[in-house]
Amino acid sequence: MNDTSSLHDLLPIGILMSVGRKITHCNSTFASLFNYEMEDIVGKSLEMLYPSRFEFLDRGEKWAEFLHIHGEHSDERIMLARKENPVWIKVRGRCRSPRDPYQLMVCTFEEVTEKGQNPELTIREYAIVKYMQQGLTSKEIARKLMISHRTVETYKNRLMVKVGARNSMHLVSLIK
């Protein structure tokens, strides 16, 4: 192992290099953030880390717009670790060529909420959990709060990441 690869693996933040949205290089922090070994993900499409193909394509289009103008971008999003466990991630990326942003890109990945933390809930998050505890579905909760059921699902996913829950039942049991 040379000094450069040692340096990359010692960094407390995930690092990824991609070509055409396929993983060409990453450090061990990136791999472990998503519960993979490096050899399991190098050469694979980033799509495997998104909740759906739609999310992968939609996020790609939005990033391409920013990268074309600025050459770099950042955002926070839910991504999927191995076994479809949601992880709330801050992603920062920079491309070599704004004209062809996905030709070569380098990104950092950082978990927004550490596992095991129990952050304070917003009023909306608390309301959603309370309705979940009453056995209401996402559509029923959405009607009560006058928001879309997809927004309720987004809140649920973010809450699961915030409190380290594996699924909705686990989420309900963790929040009193």
Rank of each mutant, 00 (worst) to 15 (best):
G93N: 03
N118L: 10
D75Y: 13
W88T: 06
P98W: 04
R99S: 13
K83G: 05
E84Q: 15
Q134F: 11
M146C: 06
V129P: 01
N85S: 10
H149C: 03
F54P: 03
V106M: 03
L49N: 08
T137N: 01
L80A: 02
R143I: 12
K139C: 04
I89D: 07
V112D: 09
P119F: 01
M132S: 12
S52I: 05
T137W: 01
Y102G: 12
Q103N: 08
G135A: 01
E61S: 03
G60S: 07
L104P: 05
M79Q: 14
F54T: 06
K144S: 14
G116R: 13
S138A: 15
H68G: 15
R77N: 05
P51A: 14
Q117T: 14
Q117W: 11
D75W: 14
G93W: 00
I69C: 02
G135K: 00
H149F: 11
A64D: 08
P101E: 08
Q103R: 14
G60N: 05
L49K: 06
R82A: 15
R82K: 15
G135M: 00
E72V: 02
F54G: 05
R92T: 09
L80H: 03
R124D: 02
C95I: 07
Y50S: 13
E114L: 10
P119C: 07
R99A: 11
A64V: 01
M105A: 06
G60P: 09
T108Y: 05
L104K: 06
M146Y: 04
Y131T: 01
E111R: 15
N85G: 04
K144T: 13
I141A: 09
T137R: 14
V129S: 07
K139D: 09
E114G: 06
E125I: 05
G116A: 06
K144W: 01
